[in-house]
């Protein structure tokens, strides 16, 4: 295995983590969606590189699925959603951007410390990929936790799923059917969530999830 192969895959996976940080930093919905699209594009590149490095052509299908679904279709739908809901305004982050970034760094450190130690015996590709993937998953969760807007929570969820796909493709021999089914379940989740968003707005005139809390009888 040449050093270049490893370096490129390292670079691509690392830039996925970087995109997660960018996601964390965005405070407007359109740019959040754009960043997500970029992350998905990088994901598909990473998968494509893995396909080449592992010599597993079926990963190319996964990469194509990632481009079509995540880099193009989902961001497009989300952009239309945001426009039709009329929420181009600033995102209210619950935690300030500074603390969120610090927390994100701590999470990445945790993911690295854990994964590199747990997978000491594994293939070096898988090790790096798993560590980055766990970072992406944790950062996605952090996005979900620190935002109040339902659309940005959806994006957090989708980015979390990017991390899962990265982990799945990094491990050699993952059957194709797993990735395909994950991709389609994400699509279905998008449809369901989209419908829900409209329903929520119809009822509450906002997609701020705090409105739901009031409905549940929560007083905080």
């Amino acid at each position: 295995m040449s050093a270049l192969v490893f370096d490129v895959s390292h670079l691509l996976a690392g830039s996925l983590v970087l995109m997660s940080f960018v996601l964390l930093y965005q405070d407007r919905l359109p740019s959040l969606i754009n960043t997500f699209a970029l992350q998905s594009l990088l994901l598909s590149l990473a998968i494509g590189w893995q396909a080449q490095a592992q010599g597993a052509p079926h990963l190319l299908v996964t990469a194509a699925l990632a481009i079509v679904l995540k880099a193009i279709l989902i961001p497009m739908v989300l952009r239309r959603l945001v426009r039709s809901l009329g929420i181009h305004r600033t995102i209210e982050t619950v935690v300030g951007i500074g603390p969120a970034m610090l927390a994100g760094m701590a999470l990445v450190a945790l993911a690295m410390a854990l994964m590199l130690r747990v997978t000491a015996a594994a293939n070096i590709f898988a090790r790096e990929d798993l560590a980055f993937a766990l970072s992406v998953v944790l950062l996605g969760l952090l996005v979900m936790v620190t935002r109040r807007n339902a659309v940005s929570q959806v994006i957090g969820f989708m980015s979390l799923e990017n991390g899962l796909v990265l982990a799945a493709t990094g491990a050699k021999g993952m059957p194709m059917v797993v990735e395909t089914s994950v991709a389609f379940s994400i699509l279905i989740a998008l449809i369901v969530i989209g419908i829900f968003l409209f329903r929520i707005r119809e009822r509450f005139d906002t997609v701020d999830v705090a409105a739901l809390d009031e409905f549940r009888g929560d007083r905080q």
Partner: peptide, 8 residues
Amino acid sequence: FLTIRRYL
């Protein structure tokens, strides 16, 4: 009786 975000 927590909020969705708190559950998350």
